[in-house]
Design a protein around this nucleic acid. Structure first.
Length: 316
DNA sequence: AAGAGGAACAACCGCAGCCTG
DNA sequence: CCAGGCTGCGGTTGTTCCTCT
């Protein structure tokens, strides 16, 4: 494929650190219009950056749902566990860590965990004792030790024994593609069998959820993967959750599915979410409780974290 | 107080894959 | 089927901050 050095821009594009003004421009633009096609974002937002740079800045830094701050011990353990299965699939690892980006996880691995594992005499590339890794010096890329299907099935079987305190609950991959969906059980154990189809990129899970917490049913959620910025687009494409009132017409934001049109959106009980549902990370904001109730959170305000929002069947 | 070195974080680069005309 | 555009991902580099001497 032909490369476009420097994006092939006629105009000199800015590089390096983002200024607060640039951040504000990008935030305002995305809040108003969504990102649509990243290549058009800098032009529309009045930024002298390439679309790629804008996308990265948004995903890694400006996204309102990012969890900033140090990694917890649970997150660290989960990263190590996932890395042992997935290798350097940072985006897939980050997808299991709500609020974390692949870049963040990657940096954390390279700057901290790698070192820590070496100190413990463990080869971070193979997760085996250093003495057992004769070719460790030659290894340049960490291989995935399990196939996607194996990972999914092993995750399903292992989830019930994982000692992650809720939240975050142990993730279970329900489909294996760049758009994965997860089933969470906040308490108790989960058992059953999974099937996986590489061709259709879906996995089926059959079995029971057994919770030991008394009469209260386990909180469950089927949620899209975290890291992908096209999660909702793919949901629309796969027909998972289109709004009942969505129109099929194309919009000016031609890369957005029609039902991601930003603007006043009202739920059944009158809550107006307004714009910017685009990058909603469902794992942070949506919890189904079996009664179609949702605990919602204002994604931009951040001041209504515990405000319950009831889902009445109309997709918002 | 100043400089060196290391750690942590942010951003860029280049490749691969998907999509569309 | 093919070429080109776009996006996503992983590796790498650059910058800033912190600690130590």
């Amino acid at each position: 494929m032909a490369k476009r050095p420097g994006g092939g821009a006629k105009k000199k594009l800015r590089r390096g650190l983002w200024s607060p003004e640039e951040d504000e421009k990008l935030m305002n633009h995305i809040a108003k219009y969504g990102h649509g096609c990243w290549s058009s974002v800098p032009k529309l937002a009045g930024l002298e950056r390439c679309g790629k740079s804008c996308r990265l800045r948004w995903i890694n830094y400006l996204r309102p749902d990012l969890k900033r701050g140090a990694f917890s011990q649970e997150e660290e353990d989960l990263i190590i566990h996932l890395h042992s299965m997935l290798g350097n699939k940072w985006s897939q690892i980050a997808a299991q860590l709500p609020g974390r980006t692949d870049n963040e996880v990657k940096n954390f691995w390279n700057s901290y965990i790698k070192k820590k594992l070496r100190q413990r005499g463990i080869d971070p590339a193979t997760h085996k004792p250093l003495s057992d890794s004769p070719a460790a010096g030659n290894r340049t890329r960490t291989p995935a030790l399990f196939s996607d299907a194996e990972l999914i099935l092993s995750s399903i079987s292992a989830a019930g024994q994982h000692h992650m305190p809720p939240p975050p609950p142990p993730p279970l991959l329900m489909t294996a593609a760049e758009e994965s969906y997860e089933m969470y059980s906040s308490e108790g154990s989960l058992s059953g069998s999974g099937s996986y189809s590489q061709s259709t990129l879906t996995a089926e899970f059959t079995g029971g959820i057994h919770h030991s917490g008394g009469g209260v049913p386990p909180v469950m959620a089927v949620i899209p993967s975290v890291s992908s910025s096209s999660t909702l687009s793919s949901m629309a494409a796969s027909g998972l959750s289109p709004p009942s009132n969505a129109t099929a017409t194309t919009t000016d934001h031609d890369c957005l599915p029609p039902w991601l049109e930003l603007g006043p959106t009202t739920t059944g009980d009158g809550n107006n979410y307004g714009a910017a549902m685009d990058e909603l990370r469902w794992s942070d904001y949506v919890m189904f409780d079996g009664n179609y109730g949702i605990q919602g959170q204002c994604i931009y305000g951040g001041d209504s974290k515990d405000t319950p929002v009831h889902f009445d069947g109309n997709w918002c």
